[in-house]
């Protein structure tokens, strides 16, 4: 944990993580539109971030189970009771487009 050390200089990645095509696939999965300039900058930035992240590749994790939660607890279960009132009007107050209680979106074809 050398706070002052620049991780990129001593950990040159030998493989590229992300190229333009990979980035556009990620942007498609995440439904974020990107313009060309933004995309090129993001390729470089993600490349640098993943180089930092590659510190984890050096840790020996042989036989170590993944940890999803920092606290070892089991899920608490909720009694099957109706507790939620109808608050449709309140919840839809700031909605972008509503008609007859429905949220409207551009036509979705199945």
């Amino acid at each position: 944990l050398r706070a002052g050390a620049a991780p990129l200089s001593n950990a040159e990645p030998d493989t590229m993580h992300i190229d333009a095509a990979a980035l556009s696939h990620l942007a498609e999965l995440a439904r974020i539109g990107l313009d060309d300039g933004e995309a090129q900058r993001l390729v470089d930035e993600l490349e640098a971030i993943l180089a930092l992240v590659d510190r984890i590749q050096e840790v020996d994790v042989e036989g170590v189970e993944p940890l999803a939660h920092p606290i070892d607890l089991a899920q608490r279960l909720r009694p099957d009771r109706v507790t939620e009132p109808d608050l449709r009007e309140r919840y839809q107050e700031g909605a972008p487009a509503v008609e007859d209680g429905l949220f409207l979106v551009p036509r979705v074809v199945e």
Binding site: D100, G101, L102, F103, L104, V105, V108
Partner: peptide, 15 residues
Amino acid sequence: KSLHEDYHGMTGIDL
């Protein structure tokens, strides 16, 4: 559910 009846050419979402 997505309701495809015509809401000015839009789809209505009922959750």
